[in-house]
Simulated scan of single mutants.
Amino acid sequence: MALSYKTRRRLSLLILLVGMPLYIVVAVTLVNLLERPPFWLELIIYVLLGFLWILPFKAVFTGIGQVDPEAKKPDER
């Protein structure tokens, strides 16, 4: 089932405003469980976690910055 542009836009906003802060808290908590690894390892972990969060939401964010393809043009009625 394909989501409409409006639904994807609202869902992406929800993900960024609610999901991202929660994900950051979880990521920092997981790294803290490792008892402060070396800087280079900690950096690699954060980079990987920063990349992995977007994979499940790629379809939601695709095309959000573009003009609404379902919107009518001003000359149409």
Rank of each mutant, 00 (worst) to 15 (best):
P37R: 11
L11P: 03
Q66G: 03
Y23Q: 04
A27C: 10
L22W: 12
A27E: 08
M20N: 06
F39Q: 10
K72P: 03
L13F: 09
L33P: 01
F39E: 13
V31A: 08
L55V: 15
E35Y: 08
V60H: 00
V60S: 01
R36S: 10
I24D: 04
L16D: 15
L34M: 12
M20L: 14
P56Y: 09
G65V: 00
L49V: 11
Q66C: 02
V28R: 08
I54F: 13
R36E: 06
G50W: 03
V18H: 08
I44A: 15
F51S: 10
E42K: 15
V47L: 14
P21M: 01
F57M: 09
F61C: 01
L14G: 13
T62W: 05
G19T: 00
L55G: 02
K58Q: 14
V18Q: 08
T62S: 06
L13H: 10
F51R: 11
Y23D: 03
D68C: 04
G63C: 04
K72H: 13
A59T: 14
P21Y: 00
T7R: 06
Y46T: 04
V47D: 08
V26A: 14
L16W: 06
G50P: 02
L33T: 04
G50F: 02
P69D: 04
N32K: 14
W40D: 12
W40F: 13
T29F: 12
L34V: 07
R8W: 05
I44N: 05
L41A: 14
W40V: 12
Q66W: 00
A27V: 15
K58I: 12
K58T: 11
L55S: 07
L41I: 15
M20W: 10
R10M: 13
L14P: 00
I45V: 11
W40T: 11
V28I: 14
V47Y: 08
F57L: 12
G19K: 02
F51H: 10
I24Y: 05
L14Y: 11
P21H: 02
P37T: 07
I64D: 02
V47A: 13
R8T: 01
P56K: 10
Y46I: 02
P69V: 05
L34I: 09
L22K: 01
S4Y: 04
A71H: 13
L14C: 05
T7H: 03
V31E: 07
S4F: 05
F61W: 03
L16R: 11
T29N: 04
R10E: 15
L17N: 11
L55T: 12
E42Q: 14
L55R: 12
I15C: 04
W53C: 01
E70K: 14
W40P: 00
S4N: 08
Y5K: 01
V31S: 05
L49I: 13
S12Y: 03
I64K: 02
G63S: 07
R36C: 00
K58H: 14
I44H: 04
G50V: 12
L33W: 14
L17P: 01
